[in-house]
Nucleic acid binder design. Structure first.
Lengths: 354, 354
DNA sequence: CTGAAAGCGCTTACAG
DNA sequence: CTGAAAGCGCTTACAG
């Protein structure tokens, strides 16, 4: 019993799961079984399992389905140096660091490595990830689509979406923030200051989180009996450039808004610049509210009032969720939604002051 | 000054780290090898490995010793995906994302996972890293000290410092930026605009990169015959708060500077805020130059003129260097220093205009 | 793209 | 207690 087990440090998984054994696997689905059920050979199953090329798409799908149905597990799945993979669609995301910090914290406490992938720049990323066999994958902001999900599922690797959409279509467990509420709160704040002509610069059409923020905005406006003019409703990419463009257009209106609610902080900074160029002061001539609360929000001039997404906590929650699924446990809920807060700083004021 | 072009394929780019495989294990100690060295059969080694009964105590000990000597690992442990570990001292570092992007790019092209550690928040990080057996470790901004270096070296894991200091003391291969040159160029720019009373807010004493920037500043001032007044030379942490504090103090001087060169962008943003509070305009009343060129530099108001460190390229160069060392090759040079550029934006102007 | 055959590393069952 | 032989599950190399 006291035998030395040199592999123990790397080999032992976090949870008390039995150590994988190489020989006979009692009652477990084997590659051979999967091959028979899928009507292919063992080598083909092996290729699918490892994301190797040289398998027809149709064959791959059939094998993946059997793999899923039979809940295939690799014999060494448990024995691996456990790691948690985080896939970002694009690293330009200013949210990335905060999220990584949350993930790293949870993973570190569990002695788990954190892997890191930028999907946009690496077309074959999923093959690589499959080869690495992480304990779970966290996909940030749409980094994993339906097809990827299927392949991960086939390999028995749970996927968690860190994504504000909460889109239930994919039925992927997910972590997000209270976007609708954030939009509501931000808008209420502006209404309470006395604003009525409030513009909103929204996000791209397909982005559900942006839609939720917009809906929150509308709800607050409706509740206050404030009209939402079409000319004050803009949308674009969540970028500084689009903030600048829309800000300029809004300020050039014959009846410009007295306040702008921006779908993220980058847009807000673009509006800042538009105001500067138009000779308007924030907040005296124009109130601005952002969304995200990126670190630079409090360093901007004036410090930006914004809706805070708790990104580190979201990362941590995603990691917790992923690890629960990886352990084969059923998480208390498949959708975790964290609260947003309005952070009051110096970019909003009453429209009557000026 | 530029030494490594990450995009350029080296002589044998395909070389790299062996991909994990289930079958053959090249060069790894197998049960068969251990058995031969211990003068027993493979089944006996297997029993020892798994703590099964039916092995004489003496035999067991002999086997265990060989196991240890040969650093035997279970094949599943070997199946671990090769990975490159990046250790950040603190994730708050605003440089982290850019660096990670560069590392991820190189690693992705080589099918390598990128691991991710925040050392400040994880005291036992090195133990964890050693357990993971990364192909190499990249330590960002002082994340690895002399002791860690020794332990990594003992485990045959190469260490690369991504660090502006270029401190030759530890003889750790490193990647940095041309800090002295950056300081010189930034200061020259201000001198050419006509400034003479130029302040500098430097970094903490122990931080050699900050010292290099300061020395570059002095060199430019000396060359121009501009005096460096002690009251215009400040130092502190590389933070917004210290920028604000020193900015306020500098502007309160009876003869305030007409320009400030800041040791990083955060300090510059603090100076912005100090100027706003003092009712001074940038750049009309005060020119400001930063260092780093973080993304938000171009979104600040006014857009910040700053010295760009090519962080992504630095990350990529560090990864290349690390992989070269991991492959057992001798890199062309042990210190890679990438060039810095002055990025002219809207925060500097002639002192005569106002 | 596919799979028969060979092979790998480890374990099991069993004879000595 | 020990190990030759058989076997397991998976992967690789290669011919079709």
């Amino acid at each position: 019993m006291t035998a030395v087990d040199p592999a123990a440090p790397t080999g032992r998984a976090a949870k008390g799961v039995p150590v994988a054994r190489r020989g006979r696997r009692r009652g477990e689905t084997t590659v051979a079984v999967v091959a028979r059920l899928a009507g292919v050979s063992a080598p083909t199953v092996s290729k699918v399992l490892n994301g190797h090329p040289g398998v027809a798409a149709e064959t791959r799908e059939r094998v993946e389905q059997v793999l899923r149905e039979q809940n295939y597990r690799r014999p060494d799945a448990v024995t691996q140096a456990p790691m948690l993979e985080v896939a970002f669609q694009a690293l330009e995301s200013h949210l990335a660091i905060e999220i990584m910090r949350g993930v790293a914290q949870v993973a570190g406490a569990r002695q788990l490595a954190v892997g890191f992938t930028e999907t946009a720049s690496a077309p074959g990323w999923l093959d690589q990830v499959l080869r690495r066999r992480p304990v779970a994958v966290i996909a940030v902001y749409g980094a994993a689509m339906r097809r990827e999900h299927a392949r991960l599922a086939a390999s028995g690797i749970p996927l968690v979406a860190l994504d504000p959409t909460g889109e239930p279509v994919h039925s992927v467990p997910s972590v997000g923030a209270a976007n609708w509420n954030g939009g509501l709160t931000a808008t209420r704040h502006l209404l309470e200051l006395g604003h009525r002509r409030i513009a909103m610069i929204g996000g791209p059409p397909g982005f559900l989180a942006a839609r939720a923020r917009l809906d929150g905005f509308r709800a607050a406006m409706d509740a206050a009996g404030a009209p939402v003019e079409a000319s004050l409703l803009r949308s674009g990419t969540l970028s500084y450039e689009d903030g600048l463009r829309h800000g300029r257009d809004l300020l050039a209106l014959s009846a410009p808004p007295t306040a702008v609610f921006c779908c993220n902080d980058l847009l807000a900074l673009g509006v800042y610049e538009a105001a500067r160029r138009a000779g308007r002061r924030v907040p005296d001539d124009l109130s601005v509210v952002g969304f995200d609360d990126l670190e630079f929000a409090r360093w901007s001039g004036p410090a930006l009032t914004t809706v805070r997404q708790p990104l580190a906590e979201m990362g941590a929650a995603a990691a917790e969720l992923a690890l629960t699924l990886a352990a084969g446990d059923v998480p208390p809920r498949l959708r975790v939604e964290l609260a947003t807060d309005l952070v009051l700083r110096a970019s909003t004021a009453s429209p009557f002051a000026a």
